[in-house]
Amino acid sequence: MRTVDGRVAGRRGQATRQKLLDCLSEMLSSSPYRDVKVIDVARRAGTSPATFYQYFPDVEGAVLEIAEQTTADAADLTALVQGRSWTGRAGWTTAQELVDGFLEFWRKNDAILRVVDLGAAEGDKRFSKLRTRILTSVTGSLADSVAELQAKGKVDKDVSPAAVAGSLVAMLSAVASHQKGTSAWGVKQAELKPGLALLVHLGVTGRKPTK
């Protein structure tokens, strides 16, 4: 791990760098992204702005680093789909666990994902690419699942696996990013997951789940 000027960071330097990232993550949870300043992050981490600039060019650079780490963590979502069965009761379990895992991932990383969504919406290609990478971890595996069922004659041959997978993941990400606001629609959290799982199962298999 290197500093901005190319020097190799020692163990202490790496710890300081991570502390700055952790403090920034905490601040993003309670403050608008645009309001976060280098001096505030440094003060919270118990260091100076000069130290911050040793590791990051600006707040945005540090935010992108956090987003990169989140993208790497998103790869674990693949295990919720890859190699899982979509037939019988096992299929209903797969759909439920995918929804549970996806929503939990979003809750855990809500602050940085909101910033990624904002940057992508504003047309920043760096954030757009990160968002695509985060969602691709699930989209590709879901598309493979639909294609496998299709090859076995269990899904209509005219269905596009990529289109179905992309639509389902777009739905999951949209709902996940609005979890706190669903109560305003009269939706209880206890009802949200089963509803999403039903839609996912129907989308992948074209059938009602066996419960």
Rank of each mutant, 00 (worst) to 15 (best):
S177C: 04
P161V: 08
A190R: 07
S177P: 06
L135K: 04
L130I: 15
G140H: 07
A143T: 12
S183K: 10
I134S: 04
G203M: 04
A174Y: 07
E148H: 06
L172T: 08
V164H: 09
G140V: 14
A176K: 05
P194D: 05
R133P: 01
H178S: 11
S177V: 05
V187H: 02
A147H: 15
V169D: 04
H201D: 01
T205H: 03
V164D: 01
K193R: 14
T136N: 06
L196W: 09
S160W: 12
E191P: 00
L130C: 07
R207C: 07
W185C: 03
A143S: 15
P194C: 03
L149A: 04
P161E: 10
H178C: 02
P194A: 05
Q189H: 05
V155W: 01
L198M: 10
R133G: 15
A151Y: 05
G195H: 00
V155Q: 00
K208R: 04
K180P: 06
R131A: 10
G203R: 06
W185E: 01
T136D: 15
E148N: 08
W185H: 03
K152H: 07
T139W: 02
L198G: 02
V169I: 11
A151S: 10
W185S: 10
T132C: 04
L149T: 08
G186R: 03
L172D: 06
G186F: 05
V175W: 02
L196C: 11
A151P: 03
V164T: 15
T132V: 05
Q150E: 06
T132Q: 14
G153K: 05
D144W: 09
Q189E: 11
A174I: 01
L202V: 11
S141K: 13
K157D: 07
Q189T: 11
T182V: 15
G153C: 07
H201C: 05
S160V: 14
L149M: 13
V159Q: 03
E148F: 05
L168Q: 09
E148P: 02
K188N: 04
D158S: 15
T182S: 00
R131W: 12
A147G: 10
T205E: 00
R133M: 01
T132L: 08
I134Q: 00
E191C: 00
T139D: 10
L130E: 01
S177T: 15
G140E: 13
K193A: 10
V164I: 15
A170F: 12
T136L: 05
S141G: 09
G181K: 05
A143G: 14
T182D: 00
L135N: 09
G181V: 10
G140T: 13
Q150D: 06
W185F: 12
V204N: 02
G206Y: 09
W185V: 00
V159S: 02
V138C: 11
V138G: 00
Q189N: 06
A165D: 11
V155M: 05
Q150S: 03
V164M: 13
A197L: 08
M171I: 11
G186H: 03
S183V: 15
K157G: 01
K180C: 08
L198Y: 13
R207N: 09
P194G: 04
D158I: 11
K157Q: 11
A197K: 04
S160R: 12
K188F: 04
Q179R: 11
L168G: 04
V175D: 02
W185N: 00
K193H: 07
